[in-house]
Design a protein around this nucleic acid. Structure first.
Lengths: 211, 211
DNA sequence: CTATAATATGAGGATGTCCTCAGATTTGTC
DNA sequence: GACAAATCTGAGGACATCCTCATATTATAG
């Protein structure tokens, strides 16, 4: 059960401490490969990220990479699954307390979550929009948007479902827009940047949801 | 003078009426090729847009395409030059009257301009961020941003130069963020979409520039 | 220690893209 | 009509990428 290509983060994490074998085995290798792949994706972008580069960075051969992932798309799927879990872990508690927060506070928290994700997984937003993935799992495309929409409806129950979805769509796009600038910015500029984009999203949600 | 690869829009337009020859010649062929290339770029994105597809769409051979453009990058450069002129033509008058407008009106006009550009040249924003182009002309990267920054400073002279640039940067990113959603949307949805993003930019600029 | 299973290796096949170039076609000129 | 210049053509070279697979290495169980 630990040999075919498609791993989720939970699968990867399931392991107990044991002495390190010479040849890197199973789950640990998968984790290494995924980490290397994430780095390459983050640095080169989806198209320019080559399987060879991923394998090299992980200290493995191309063959080994293909042992665990049948193709490039599978690597992306695995990473997205991992990111999805991470995102959900941060998002669920926020959604739970959304009704108790003002719009301004909500915006703050949303940006905190996104910034954490971007710091921890620079490839996150790069891979969110990667092509060719929605064919096999069309639902994945909307998962994050639905999270957002749900929070907004909780905040303003009078919002229609479609309307909330539209608002979520725009909000998500605003946050995504921060990514390329964020990636290039220095540490201080990043603080500035987050403040600027918070204003934008705050201004939008304030006007859209009221108060 | 009409044979080496790199044309700007002004070069293309310079011609007097004359009877149409059987074989498509010079400037007209360049215009055809650029138009076809723009369509391919808009539909396929930068990476997936192939030179073969551009040539085919223009009803020419690959060889003919390479007669006018030494490489793919040159095609992009020519298109960007054309778009730059178009953008400047719309932007200059707006900048001139910026000081007489409220922030809300300014936002409206800015979106009008951007929407016009996106309707007329769907490849515009795709190519703005295309890779590999800033190496030869690093200034191109900032040209549009500087236009924006100038308008903001005209509106609020107390804004520092760098600060205005930062605001421009964010504003531009907001507008760009609309593009992928815009491209997928129906005509009615587009109206909605522009309204939503106007709120976001309006909210941001309102908070940033005041009133 | 041996046998079997698990894993790793990397040359190379298949494919696709950018770009070249020698030769063919068309146009313009006298 | 004849010649030169401009333009077009498309097969194929060069290269890069994804992916395969026969072979080699390492781990583990009996």
């Amino acid at each position: 059960m630990s040999k075919t290509g498609d791993f989720t983060a939970s699968t990867v994490m399931a392991k107990t401490a044991r002495r390190v074998p010479q040849q890197v085995r199973g789950e640990r290798r998968v984790a290494e490969l995924l980490e290397a792949a994430a780095e390459v994706f983050a640095e080169a972008g989806y198209e320019a990220a080559t399987m060879t580069a991923m394998a090299e960075r992980a200290g493995a051969s191309i063959g080994a990479l293909y042992q665990y992932f049948p193709n490039k798309e599978a690597v992306v799927r695995a990473l997205r699954a991992q990111y999805g879990e991470e995102m959900a872990a941060r998002w669920t508690p926020l959604a739970a307390e959304a009704s108790r927060l003002t719009v301004a506070e909500l915006v703050d928290r949303m940006f905190e979550v996104m910034v954490e994700m971007m710091e921890a997984w620079p490839a996150y937003l790069t891979l969110l929009g990667a092509p060719g993935n929605y064919k096999r799992d069309p639902a994945a495309r909307n998962r994050l948007r639905e999270h957002f929409a749900e929070v907004f409806r909780q905040k303003r129950p009078q919002l229609g479902k479609e309307e909330a979805f539209r608002v979520a769509n725009v909000a998500l796009q605003l946050v995504k827009g921060m990514n390329p600038l964020y990636a290039e910015a220095s540490a201080e500029e990043r603080v500035e940047l987050v403040r600027e984009f918070k204003m934008a999203l705050g201004g939008y949600l304030g006007a859209r949801l009221g108060g």
